[in-house]
Protein backbone atom coordinates (compact mmCIF):
# COMPACT_ATOMS: atom_id res chain seq x y z
CA UNK A 1 0.00 0.00 0.00
CA UNK A 2 1.26 3.44 -0.91
CA UNK A 3 1.82 5.95 1.89
CA UNK A 4 -0.71 8.73 2.12
CA UNK A 5 0.83 12.05 0.99
CA UNK A 6 1.67 14.29 3.92
CA UNK A 7 0.10 17.26 2.15
CA UNK A 8 -2.40 17.24 -0.70
CA UNK A 9 -3.72 20.12 -2.72
CA UNK A 10 -7.05 19.64 -4.48
CA UNK A 11 -8.51 21.93 -7.18
CA UNK A 12 -6.98 24.95 -5.50
CA UNK A 13 -7.55 28.35 -7.09
CA UNK A 14 -6.55 31.77 -5.92
CA UNK A 15 -7.74 35.11 -7.25
CA UNK A 16 -6.13 38.07 -5.42
CA UNK A 17 -8.84 40.35 -6.80
CA UNK A 18 -11.93 40.04 -8.95
CA UNK A 19 -11.09 39.11 -12.54
CA UNK A 20 -7.45 38.30 -11.74
CA UNK A 21 -6.67 34.63 -11.17
CA UNK A 22 -3.11 33.85 -10.12
CA UNK A 23 -3.46 30.08 -9.59
CA UNK A 24 -6.14 27.90 -11.15
CA UNK A 25 -7.14 24.31 -10.34
CA UNK A 26 -3.86 23.24 -8.71
CA UNK A 27 -3.56 19.57 -7.69
CA UNK A 28 -0.45 18.37 -5.85
CA UNK A 29 0.66 15.53 -3.61
CA UNK A 30 3.63 16.22 -1.33
CA UNK A 31 5.27 13.07 -0.01
CA UNK A 32 6.65 12.84 3.51
CA UNK A 33 10.41 13.28 3.53
CA UNK A 34 10.45 14.82 0.05
CA UNK A 35 12.56 17.78 -1.01
CA UNK A 36 10.73 19.96 -3.50
CA UNK A 37 12.37 22.91 -5.23
CA UNK A 38 9.66 25.38 -6.20
CA UNK A 39 10.62 27.02 -9.49
CA UNK A 40 8.97 29.39 -11.89
CA UNK A 41 9.14 32.89 -13.34
CA UNK A 42 8.98 35.90 -11.07
CA UNK A 43 5.37 36.75 -10.14
CA UNK A 44 4.09 33.29 -11.17
CA UNK A 45 2.77 32.61 -7.66
CA UNK A 46 5.53 30.56 -5.95
CA UNK A 47 5.34 32.44 -2.66
CA UNK A 48 1.56 32.66 -2.96
CA UNK A 49 1.36 28.88 -3.21
CA UNK A 50 3.41 28.45 -0.02
CA UNK A 51 1.33 31.06 1.80
CA UNK A 52 -1.86 29.27 0.73
CA UNK A 53 -0.57 26.01 2.19
CA UNK A 54 -0.19 27.51 5.68
CA UNK A 55 -3.29 29.72 5.36
CA UNK A 56 -1.52 33.05 5.56
CA UNK A 57 -3.85 33.73 2.65
CA UNK A 58 -7.03 31.83 1.86
CA UNK A 59 -7.86 30.20 -1.48
CA UNK A 60 -10.81 31.27 -3.61
CA UNK A 61 -11.77 27.62 -3.96
CA UNK A 62 -10.33 24.14 -3.45
CA UNK A 63 -8.78 22.40 -0.47
CA UNK A 64 -5.47 21.63 1.22
CA UNK A 65 -5.25 18.42 3.26
CA UNK A 66 -2.64 17.68 5.92
CA UNK A 67 -2.42 13.89 6.32
CA UNK A 68 -5.88 13.68 4.78
CA UNK A 69 -7.41 16.27 7.12
CA UNK A 70 -8.66 19.53 5.60
CA UNK A 71 -6.45 22.32 6.92
CA UNK A 72 -9.44 24.61 7.51
CA UNK A 73 -10.52 22.21 10.28
CA UNK A 74 -7.19 22.57 12.07
CA UNK A 75 -6.85 25.62 14.37
CA UNK A 76 -4.62 28.08 12.51
CA UNK A 77 -1.85 28.34 15.17
CA UNK A 78 -1.60 24.54 15.34
CA UNK A 79 -1.54 24.22 11.55
CA UNK A 80 1.16 26.87 11.14
CA UNK A 81 3.40 25.14 13.70
CA UNK A 82 3.15 22.00 11.54
CA UNK A 83 3.25 23.54 8.07
CA UNK A 84 5.81 26.15 8.91
CA UNK A 85 6.51 29.04 6.54
CA UNK A 86 9.80 30.87 6.81
CA UNK A 87 10.03 34.37 5.37
CA UNK A 88 12.63 35.57 2.93
CA UNK A 89 14.09 38.14 5.33
CA UNK A 90 15.34 36.84 8.70
CA UNK A 91 13.27 38.65 11.31
CA UNK A 92 14.48 38.83 14.89
CA UNK A 93 12.55 40.01 17.93
CA UNK A 94 14.21 42.20 20.55
CA UNK A 95 16.45 40.22 22.90
CA UNK A 96 19.17 37.65 22.71
CA UNK A 97 19.67 34.64 20.43
CA UNK A 98 18.11 32.32 23.03
CA UNK A 99 15.04 34.59 23.38
CA UNK A 100 14.59 34.36 19.64
CA UNK A 101 14.98 30.61 19.43
CA UNK A 102 12.53 30.06 22.29
CA UNK A 103 10.02 32.63 20.98
CA UNK A 104 7.56 29.94 19.75
CA UNK A 105 7.22 28.61 23.31
CA UNK A 106 5.78 31.95 24.45
CA UNK A 107 2.68 31.18 22.35
CA UNK A 108 -0.28 29.32 23.84
CA UNK A 109 -0.52 26.80 20.97
CA UNK A 110 3.01 25.54 21.74
CA UNK A 111 2.75 25.58 25.54
CA UNK A 112 2.44 21.79 25.76
CA UNK A 113 5.57 21.19 23.65
CA UNK A 114 8.81 20.32 25.36
CA UNK A 115 11.20 23.28 25.57
CA UNK A 116 14.75 22.38 24.60
CA UNK A 117 17.20 22.81 27.48
CA UNK A 118 20.43 24.79 27.15
CA UNK A 119 22.48 21.68 26.26
CA UNK A 120 20.05 20.74 23.50
CA UNK A 121 20.09 24.31 22.21
CA UNK A 122 23.89 24.29 22.03
CA UNK A 123 23.75 21.00 20.13
CA UNK A 124 21.24 22.46 17.65
CA UNK A 125 23.46 25.53 17.29
CA UNK A 126 26.41 23.28 16.42
CA UNK A 127 24.31 21.40 13.87
CA UNK A 128 23.45 24.65 12.14
CA UNK A 129 27.08 25.85 12.24
CA UNK A 130 26.29 28.51 14.84
CA UNK A 131 28.63 27.06 17.48
CA UNK A 132 30.67 30.27 17.79
CA UNK A 133 27.60 32.32 18.66
CA UNK A 134 26.78 33.04 22.31
CA UNK A 135 23.14 32.30 23.20
CA UNK A 136 22.97 35.56 25.16
CA UNK A 137 24.27 37.67 22.30
CA UNK A 138 21.81 40.38 21.15
CA UNK A 139 20.12 38.97 18.05
CA UNK A 140 20.39 42.22 16.13
CA UNK A 141 24.20 41.96 16.31
CA UNK A 142 24.26 38.77 14.21
CA UNK A 143 25.17 38.73 10.53
CA UNK A 144 22.34 38.17 8.04
CA UNK A 145 23.55 34.63 7.40
CA UNK A 146 23.58 33.86 11.13
CA UNK A 147 20.13 35.39 11.55
CA UNK A 148 18.80 33.19 8.76
CA UNK A 149 20.15 30.09 10.52
CA UNK A 150 18.68 31.26 13.86
CA UNK A 151 15.32 31.55 12.04
CA UNK A 152 15.76 28.01 10.75
CA UNK A 153 16.60 26.80 14.25
CA UNK A 154 13.62 28.67 15.71
CA UNK A 155 11.41 26.76 13.26
CA UNK A 156 13.07 23.43 13.99
CA UNK A 157 12.40 23.56 17.74
CA UNK A 158 8.73 23.11 16.83
CA UNK A 159 9.51 19.88 14.87
CA UNK A 160 7.31 20.91 11.94
CA UNK A 161 5.91 18.31 9.51
CA UNK A 162 6.78 20.50 6.54
CA UNK A 163 9.12 23.45 6.16
CA UNK A 164 8.11 26.05 3.57
CA UNK A 165 11.21 28.08 2.76
CA UNK A 166 10.66 31.24 0.72
CA UNK A 167 13.98 32.17 -0.91
CA UNK A 168 15.95 31.89 2.35
CA UNK A 169 19.22 32.72 0.63
CA UNK A 170 18.14 35.74 -1.41
CA UNK A 171 19.59 38.25 1.07
CA UNK A 172 22.86 36.33 1.54
CA UNK A 173 26.24 36.46 -0.16
CA UNK A 174 27.45 33.34 -1.98
CA UNK A 175 29.37 31.82 0.96
CA UNK A 176 26.57 32.34 3.47
CA UNK A 177 24.00 31.10 0.97
CA UNK A 178 26.04 27.93 0.49
CA UNK A 179 26.17 27.32 4.28
CA UNK A 180 22.41 27.84 4.66
CA UNK A 181 21.60 25.58 1.70
CA UNK A 182 24.02 22.96 3.00
CA UNK A 183 22.24 22.94 6.37
CA UNK A 184 18.80 22.78 4.73
CA UNK A 185 19.97 19.80 2.65
CA UNK A 186 21.41 18.21 5.82
CA UNK A 187 18.04 18.58 7.60
CA UNK A 188 16.43 16.69 4.77
CA UNK A 189 19.11 13.98 4.51
CA UNK A 190 19.72 13.34 8.20
CA UNK A 191 16.38 14.17 9.77
CA UNK A 192 14.01 13.30 6.91
CA UNK A 193 12.53 16.80 7.01
CA UNK A 194 9.94 17.47 4.28
CA UNK A 195 10.93 20.71 2.56
CA UNK A 196 9.46 22.99 -0.09
CA UNK A 197 12.07 25.53 -1.11
CA UNK A 198 11.44 28.51 -3.36
CA UNK A 199 14.65 29.47 -5.09
CA UNK A 200 15.70 31.52 -8.08
CA UNK A 201 17.42 28.42 -9.35
CA UNK A 202 21.11 29.21 -9.75
CA UNK A 203 22.32 27.60 -6.53
CA UNK A 204 23.31 23.95 -6.23
CA UNK A 205 21.40 22.06 -3.55
CA UNK A 206 23.32 19.03 -2.30
CA UNK A 207 20.37 16.61 -2.28
CA UNK A 208 20.10 13.46 -4.43
CA UNK A 209 16.39 12.98 -4.88
CA UNK A 210 15.34 16.57 -5.62
CA UNK A 211 11.87 17.05 -7.05
CA UNK A 212 10.88 20.16 -8.96
CA UNK A 213 7.55 21.83 -8.27
CA UNK A 214 6.99 24.08 -11.24
CA UNK A 215 4.73 27.11 -10.92
CA UNK A 216 3.94 28.82 -14.21
CA UNK A 217 1.04 29.96 -16.39
CA UNK A 218 -1.41 29.94 -13.49
CA UNK A 219 -0.85 26.39 -12.38
CA UNK A 220 1.59 24.24 -10.42
CA UNK A 221 2.73 20.68 -10.96
CA UNK A 222 5.45 18.32 -9.79
CA UNK A 223 7.84 17.33 -12.58
Amino acid sequence: MLDQPILSVRALSYAPSEGETLLRDVNLDIEAGGFYVVKGPSGAGKSTLLRLLCRLILPSSGAVLLRGRPVNRIPAPELRSKVLYLHQSPLMVEGGVEDNILLPFTFKANAALERPGRERLLELMRELRLDGVDLDRPADKLSVGQKQRVCLLRALVLSPDILLLDEPTSALDQDNAAVVLDRIAWLHREKGQTILLVTHGTQVIPVDNLRTLSVRNGTARIE
Binding site: L56, L103, F107
Partner: peptide
Protein backbone atom coordinates in the same frame (compact mmCIF):
# COMPACT_ATOMS: atom_id res chain seq x y z
CA UNK B 1 6.53 35.64 11.39
CA UNK B 2 4.88 35.18 14.81
CA UNK B 3 1.75 33.70 13.24
CA UNK B 4 3.94 31.21 11.38
CA UNK B 5 5.48 30.11 14.66
CA UNK B 6 2.06 29.27 16.12
CA UNK B 7 0.98 32.61 17.57
CA UNK B 8 -2.69 33.56 17.69
Amino acid sequence: MRLCLGAT
